[in-house]
Design a binder for these strands. Structure first.
Lengths: 332, 332
DNA sequence: CTGAAAGCGCTTACAG
DNA sequence: CTGAAAGCGCTTACAG
């Protein structure tokens, strides 16, 4: 066996090919035409490299190069359609642009977010996408000091450009849809309830504003007990509703699919819920349209968000601004 | 500004700290106690490194070290609860063990899988977890030649150890549950239908066997048109059922949540479907229990699978065998 | 068309 | 307790 455990280097390859390490290197990294290395030699190198299962050591290669071509992303969770889609499409788009994506999941934990950002900077990422970070400004400050570009996604940050959904308009449209359906299906006209999210969270605040403005347009006041920004968990949403047995029609604005799980749990335990309750959810889930009582969902436009983001990668003079991407409202 | 764009090195830091680069290096990589560097100096180094936003260059560090501590994983998709959970928990467990996880999503594309595996080998991963790979043996062969450990997850491979769910038993249990519920709810006793997946796929084959054996136990033959292994997409499942208007009770075994979307679409367009149709799904979704007609779901035991896998990381003498992890059946 | 040599930013025996 | 020096595996001007 020519497999003595120690990994092969371009020097080993050079011996086999009977050429210099420099020649081997330039064939392997694609600069051989520029160096006017003969096609014959190039093919020989490639053939032998392939036979040997040889692979350039990325660490050594990057250490010597000026650009790493690595683009990093931190993302709160994968177990959620929205972030799953973001991670998946981010990787695909990065590859399509010839970059190497590294995504890491930070569990909505501020310290893990920061630690992961530092790790990625150590990896020499050229740009870091900070997605839904609880403390994006700390990350931005660190990256700026290290000379690494940062772009915020999903939540806005102060000192770096941000691409986020137009939560306000999406929420207002969804609220209006719930109103219309409560009216047409139940002959009832509000006020609605708001369940899920955290008021301190930018996106929840923007969505709540859309919710409130839709009420204002109708001249409706919202009793404070109708606002249950109970966090991001099914149990929290469930707890905030479990003792609520409406004696008439009710409409609910559900903030996030994770809260939707709790709302549907509540809904399914009510007698004749389908006849008297309508709800809609900010964020989409493929099973959403089959849930009784669900009138529609807001889908954030992930491809458009990422496309907008990638246009900014590598650009130095960017407005440190928030770019809003419209959402799509899906009606059932 | 002391930010002249060029990244700082330990030499720059050494000047600021007024110590040698070696001392700085050993403080930064945690070996300073072994080298008996004074606590005072260590603290000074750490303080200044922090002030400067300094971060070790991982590439340079790894190039010089013997172990990379990087563990790689390829995973088909993130937009699916099962794989999302795998990726997320894999990262958490790797971090907990002090390793650096790199996960990449390969879209069920054999060439992308292979390319990603090669990239990860270039990154000097110490172990590669090949999850649900369509052509795991090609990946295994490549990694073996490169001296990198491979472990298969979710699908078995020939030349490396594999950790997979006990698809057969899970499917048989689910089939039995659907039988019981068809009997008790509808007074009907089969044969059932099987929808989704691909027969050439190991997991589908194992699940179908469980499905068939549950029929055999009941002395029931399954007409061939009852087996619709139509692939992994909602539309495919929908297409295989859209013209099927049962004139009596029906029970359906749904293979994967992606197929479930198509089955539920079909179900929701039938008149009085709830009264006459029961189904169950292999793989779990949090909204599953709220779908009318759904009697239960099989949840694969991701924590146990990953725990089993991590025990094998770094072990050299492993049985090249398939380890089956029992599933959990959730009944609604 | 091709090779010898310097150097990327670290780590770690080795010699004090 | 600490520093000078070699070397990890590459890349790329530079000199033929």
């Amino acid at each position: 066996m020519d497999n003595d455990n120690k990994k092969k280097t371009i020097y080993d390859l050079a011996v086999l090919v009977e050429a210099s390490p420099s020649a081997v290197s330039s064939v392997l990294n694609g600069t051989w035409e520029k160096r006017r290395i003969s096609k014959k030699l190039a093919e020989k190198v490639l053939k032998i490299a392939d036979e040997q299962g040889y692979r350039l050591n990325t660490q050594a290669s990057l250490l010597r190069r000026d650009k790493s071509n690595i683009i990093g992303m931190i993302v709160p969770k994968y177990d959620n359609r929205y972030f799953g889609e973001i991670a998946e499409q981010f990787e695909a788009m990065a590859r399509a642009k010839g970059m190497f994506p590294v995504v890491t999941c930070t569990q909505r934990d501020p310290d893990l977010e920061f630690e992961a950002a530092k790790e990625l900077v150590g990896y020499q990422v050229e740009c870091l996408i900070s997605t839904g970070a609880t403390d994006s400004d700390r990350i931005t400050a660190y990256c700026k000091a290290a000379g690494v570009q940062v772009l915020n996604l999903d939540l806005p940050g102060k000192d770096a450009p941000s691409v986020i959904s137009d939560n306000y308009t999406g929420a207002r449209d969804l609220t209006n849809l719930i109103f219309r359906r409560c009216q047409s299906d139940l002959g009832w006209s509000g006020p609605l309830r708001f369940v899920g999210g955290r008021l301190s969270d930018h996106n929840t605040a923007a969505r709540l504003k859309g919710f409130m403005d839709a009420h204002k347009e109708r001249g409706l006041a919202v009793p404070s007990e109708n606002i249950q920004a109970s966090g991001y968990s099914a149990d929290a949403a469930w707890n905030s509703l479990r003792d609520f047995y409406p004696d008439g029609p009710t409409g609910v604005f559900v903030n996030s699919t994770i809260s939707l799980e709790g709302v549907v749990r509540w809904h399914s335990q009510l007698a004749d819920a389908t006849g008297s309750i309508r709800f809609g959810c900010f964020d989409r889930d493929p099973f959403g349209k089959f849930l009784p009582g669900n009138v529609g969902m807001v889908e954030q436009n992930v491809p458009k968000m990422l496309e907008t983001l990638f246009k900014m990668v590598g650009q130095s003079k960017l407005v440190q601004d928030v770019i809003l991407i419209p959402c799509k409202l899906e009606e059932f």
